[in-house]
Amino acid sequence: MDIAHFLDILWLARIPILKGLGFTISISLLAICFGTLLGIFVGLALTYGVRPLRWIVRGYTDFIRGTPVLVLVLASYYVLSTIGLDLSPFQAGVLALAVFCSSHVGEIVRGALQAIPKGQTEAAKAIGLTFPQTFAYVLGPQALRQVLPAWVNTAAEMVKASTLLSIIGVAELLLRTQEIISRSFLSLEFYFFAGFLYFIINYAIERFGRYVERKTAIPS
């Protein structure tokens, strides 16, 4: 291994790597944002939805959670263009990740809401709160504390899953890395380097999650 040679190539490839990193981060952010919005709806529908809606949403989450993310990404990429939706690989990939994210967030939200003891709702009713008020002041804030750490974890999952978009040709960090390797043949060094970058991002997210958990903990 020639460190100086690797550093030379790394310096030459800095722009594509930074661009790839930018793509990775935008893919993850978009997937998390859309996925979370959809996921909150999924979680609420699973917990409070009327029966037919609950069944439909249950079917949706079970199907998504039973399918590998890579299959979602490939299906989204191939299928959407076939039915005439002209999405770029980037858009198709983000859509697949957002759908994946929504099923995760949905389950997290449902789990958090159902974990709240029934007595909380009863106590809120007993002092005369309506259901929207009960949700806003009693259930929501308690569920949010439960959800936050797991949600931050999902964010890290999204960063990891964003690598799958390299397979449909989105020029994110991993695909850029592979391009550099195909020219420089430094596969050990550059795969290691890419892995290291991902590790740093995810480790930071994980630490942040622990911090959030501590910050929002209820004193006892």
Partner: peptide, 14 residues
């Protein structure tokens, strides 16, 4: 904290 795809490629190619 490392994407599994990176691990798979690393083991096989690197």
């Amino acid at each position: 904290n490392t994407p599994i795809l990176v691990l798979v490629l690393f083991t096989y190619f690197a």
